[in-house]
Design a protein around this nucleic acid. Structure first.
Lengths: 106, 106
DNA sequence: ACATTTGGCAACCTCCAGGTTGCCATTTCT
DNA sequence: AGAAATGGCAACCTGGAGGTTGCCAAATGT
């Protein structure tokens, strides 16, 4: 259910320090339970749960229920989406700058 | 290589569709007045002004007062910051995936 | 069998982002 | 000089984000 092409939700998911920290923790590819992920945080387990669900809705992580615990792990596609968006913007900007400079140097 | 920078504020600035649209408009490098930027929007000039100030605080755009109007234009550095962050995350993820696959294939 | 770990659900609170309206100052046009 | 364009400022409203607490259900350890 990850809409491709609209980068705003992905950026929104990335706009919170707590979620960035979670992503960094998960960026080693290992799957972790909610309890594990909220262990060394000053936040409540519920708060962490909410953040994880936000990340999941944005498609940045996926979850699997294993016994009594549900494990979360990274999913890379939306990051690629966000990166390609930034690439587009900065490329257009570079192009425009290049043209301007060419005009000036002429 | 590249400077530091906390990427969360940049992502926060990028997390709004209106601001993304503004950035795209400005990504051709030309500077525009607030009135021009809010011309083909369904939003109020004030709303657009607020969004522009958010982008400015994040360093994504800069403004210059020219006569009675203030012109806004792109500034590329924070975009580079955000991109490098996404690069870091996705590289770490790729590395982890690689190690996992190496383990599995053994 | 019982206690513990783990997590889902719901109610609640507070704060701020996004948006509006109204008014006023300055610059530009005629 | 007078009218219009441009935008800064402030008050105000509303919804949702982020966080907490409390309770309950299911899976696990002993």
């Amino acid at each position: 259910m990850t809409p491709q092409g609209n980068p705003a939700p992905v950026f929104a998911a990335l706009s919170d320090p707590t979620r960035l920290a979670l992503l960094l923790k998960l960026s080693d590819g290992r799957a972790r339970s909610i309890a594990t992920l909220s262990a060394d945080t000053h936040l409540t387990r519920q708060a962490v749960t909410k953040h994880l669900h936000v990340l999941e809705k944005a498609g940045l992580v996926g979850s699997v229920r294993v016994g009594r615990e549900s494990r979360f792990a990274c999913q890379p596609e939306p990051i690629a989406t966000a990166r390609s968006y930034l690439d587009t913007v900065s490329r257009q900007w570079d192009d425009a700058l290049g043209r301007l400079q060419a005009l000036v140097e002429r």
